[in-house]
Computed example of a mutant assay.
Amino acid sequence: MAVRKGLNPKMMRRGAAGVLLLGGIVAGAQQFVATRPVSPASRAEQIIQALDLRPQTREGGLRGVIGRTMPETLIDGKAMAVQSRNYDMLTSALPIRYLHRLESEETHILVEGGPVEVFVICPSGRTERDVMGRDYGPVEDAVVPVPAGCWQAAKLLPGAEFALMVSTQAPEWRSDHLHIGAGPEWIRHHERKGTWATPELLRELIGPNWQP
């Protein structure tokens, strides 16, 4: 198991235009955060209403669409946007983004709140548990990349009221590129691949998408 103590440069490669685009999105979200100082209990509800975040039945948490790059380009013979962007949020009432896999590379950027555990399980057998938080250093970071094709899940840490994130997908998020849910065979294959990967936690991360 690898517990990341900083960003993996190989997983964070992107062009200059992508860096500027991400910087603008996060700066805008942080400006939104800075101009509305309220108590944590009401802050989550304010963000949900202001950003029109909607509960995600299968993936868990809440989501709001920011947009995607235009024009589309051909990727593997399909017309797709190079990148899509969403707000993702976990709250004490909806604390888990359940196990799923995308065919796109995804990057999660913490805007406010947390900390959040992010679990990544790749086909190569590599597993990672990252903590997204504001205690920058060897344990926590504000950015967690997830390579295309890897399973992932996220869980709000106990005591945290909420976590607001910006998530980008490259190429764009598509419902036909989303794989969600798993069952006993998946757990048997991946349990103990990391010290954190207990059968009990893996089952919790699958949540209501259990496939017996």
Rank of each mutant, 00 (worst) to 15 (best):
G15H: 09
G15L: 08
V19W: 05
V19Q: 13
L21I: 08
L21P: 00
L21K: 07
L22E: 13
G23T: 02
G23A: 04
G24L: 11
I25N: 00
I25Q: 02
G28I: 05
G28L: 04
G28A: 07
Q30K: 15
Q31M: 06
Q31I: 01
A34L: 13
R36V: 11
R36G: 03
P37Y: 14
V38P: 03
P40S: 10
P40K: 10
A41Q: 15
S42R: 15
R43Q: 12
R43G: 05
A44Q: 11
A44I: 07
A44W: 02
E45Q: 15
I48H: 05
I48S: 05
I48C: 07
Q49V: 12
D52T: 15
D52M: 11
D52V: 14
L53T: 06
L53A: 09
Q56E: 15
Q56F: 03
Q56T: 14
T57E: 15
T57N: 11
E59Q: 10
G60N: 09
G60M: 07
G60W: 02
G60E: 08
G60H: 05
G61H: 00
L62Q: 04
R63L: 12
R63W: 08
V65E: 05
V65F: 12
I66H: 08
G67H: 06
G67N: 06
G67I: 02
T69D: 04
T69Y: 00
P71E: 05
E72M: 09
T73N: 03
T73D: 10
L74T: 14
L74R: 14
L74F: 10
I75A: 03
I75H: 09
K78Q: 15
M80I: 05
M80E: 12
M80H: 04
M80T: 07
V82I: 08
Q83A: 13
R85G: 03
R85E: 07
R85W: 12
R85L: 11
Y87M: 03
Y87Q: 03
M89K: 10
M89F: 05
L90P: 02
T91A: 02
T91G: 03
T91Q: 04
S92G: 07
S92M: 12
P95E: 10
R97M: 14
Y98Q: 09
Y98M: 07
L99K: 04
L99M: 12
H100G: 03
R101F: 01
E103K: 15
S104Y: 01
S104K: 02
E105Y: 00
E105A: 08
E106M: 08
H108Q: 10
H108G: 07
L110F: 06
V111W: 00
E112R: 05
E112K: 06
G114W: 03
G114D: 06
G114I: 04
P115M: 09
E117Q: 13
V118Q: 05
F119V: 08
F119H: 15
I121P: 00
I121Y: 03
C122A: 15
P123I: 08
S124C: 11
G125P: 07
G125L: 08
R126P: 00
R126A: 10
T127D: 01
E128V: 02
E128L: 05
V131F: 00
M132C: 06
G133Y: 07
R134M: 13
D135F: 06
G137R: 08
P138F: 06
V139C: 04
E140G: 03
E140L: 04
E140H: 09
V143K: 01
V143F: 00
V144A: 04
V144G: 01
P145A: 02
P145F: 01
P147C: 09
P147Y: 06
A148R: 13
A148I: 02
G149H: 05
C150T: 10
A153Y: 04
